[in-house]
């Protein structure tokens, strides 16, 4: 312990300015994020309003039971992870491809206009996406079925086919986030030293080689950071997205329920603060475990890419 203190004081002396630069962020995070964290104990308590978080009695793991007592815990955990993995892969991949394509376009106006347009879906809230989804897929008057009948094909009752929904959700997710994520990649690509490209074209590299040997390696750190950041939320479902697209339609739940939607529905009737905290703690702990493993693997491969 003594050596640690010594090490720290030494380090502070050596990099005083750096510590000063770090201080505001540390203080803000400590006050606004760490201090309220003490409330997590409520996950193990039978919360009473008159006793407060710390005065309430402990009740062990009882708050966690509702997630698991009918076997749904496993299903919703699995769904959450699968959706996140699927969404992660598709949306990042599409964003990267779009970013590369857009930066390769020479016509500046076309480039700017399309880039702006692709950003538009980000502004369309999930409430409205939900309206669109219903207007596309509803059986009687939906756009899809109107199209199918006009082509002389048979109507599809999408709401009775849960298997379709992972794809629908995934498609809308990619659609919504594609512009947003591609901005990060576009910024990363534009940050690449233009001289490298010039040198490459003088060497006679074709466009594919340029992308493969220059662009992709240059944005690799960004890609890995984005992936790691997303992995850190692998057990959190985008509640608004699922809730607005699927809503109360029980037919689809087995294929679309994630932890967040299940918890929301379960606690609608009794607003149990302890149970809400329990679910969130469960997600956090699993996320922590997964991210520690993934980060360690990344570190083994290349230390520079690790998150911490």
């Amino acid at each position: 312990m003594g050596t640690h203190v010594k090490n720290i004081t030494q380090e502070v002396k050596k990099n005083k300015a750096l510590f000063v630069m770090l201080a505001p962020a540390v203080v803000i995070v400590l006050i606004f994020m760490y201090l309220p964290m003490s409330g997590l104990v409520v996950a193990f308590k039978n919360y009473r309003y008159d006793l407060g978080v710390f005065g309430s009695e402990w009740n062990g793991l009882a708050n966690f039971a509702y997630m698991f007592n009918s076997g749904t815990g496993w299903l919703i955990t699995r769904n959450t992870i699968l959706y996140n993995v699927l969404n992660l892969i598709t949306s990042q991949l599409i964003s990267i491809v779009i970013a590369i394509f857009i930066t390769e376009i020479n016509k500046k106006h076309f480039q700017k206009v399309t880039q702006s347009i692709i950003f538009l879906p980000y502004f369309i809230s999930w409430v409205i996406v939900g309206v669109f989804v219903y207007n596309i897929f509803n059986y009687e008057t939906g756009m899809l079925n109107t199209l199918l009948t006009s082509l002389g094909l048979e109507k599809i009752n999408a709401y009775s086919k849960p298997g379709l929904w992972p794809f629908i959700i995934c498609a809308f997710n990619s659609w919504k986030w594609c512009g947003y994520n591609s901005v990060i990649y576009i910024a990363a690509i534009t940050g690449v030293d233009a001289e490298i490209y010039e040198a490459a074209s003088i060497d006679g590299a074709n466009i594919f080689q340029r992308i493969r040997y220059i662009t992709v390696p240059c944005i690799k750190p960004t890609i890995i950071t984005m992936l790691l950041l997303q992995v850190g939320r692998i057990l959190r479902g985008d509640f608004e997205m699922f809730y607005q697209i699927v809503g109360n339609n029980g037919q689809l739940f087995n294929a679309t329920d994630v932890i967040d939607t299940y918890v929301f529905r379960s606690l609608l009737q009794n607003s149990n603060i302890g149970m809400t905290a329990a679910a969130s703690l469960y997600q956090s702990v699993l996320c922590l475990i997964i991210i520690l493993i993934v980060n360690r693997v990344v570190k083994k491969i290349d230390e520079d890419y690790a998150l911490f």
Binding site: P36, T276, S280, S284
Partner: peptide, 18 residues
């Protein structure tokens, strides 16, 4: 410090206590 910051994306005090 990275971890100190990152940790807050995993855990939060929950709406009530915050």
């Amino acid at each position: 410090f990275s971890f100190f910051f990152y940790f807050t994306t995993l855990f939060n005090g929950g709406m009530v206590c915050t």
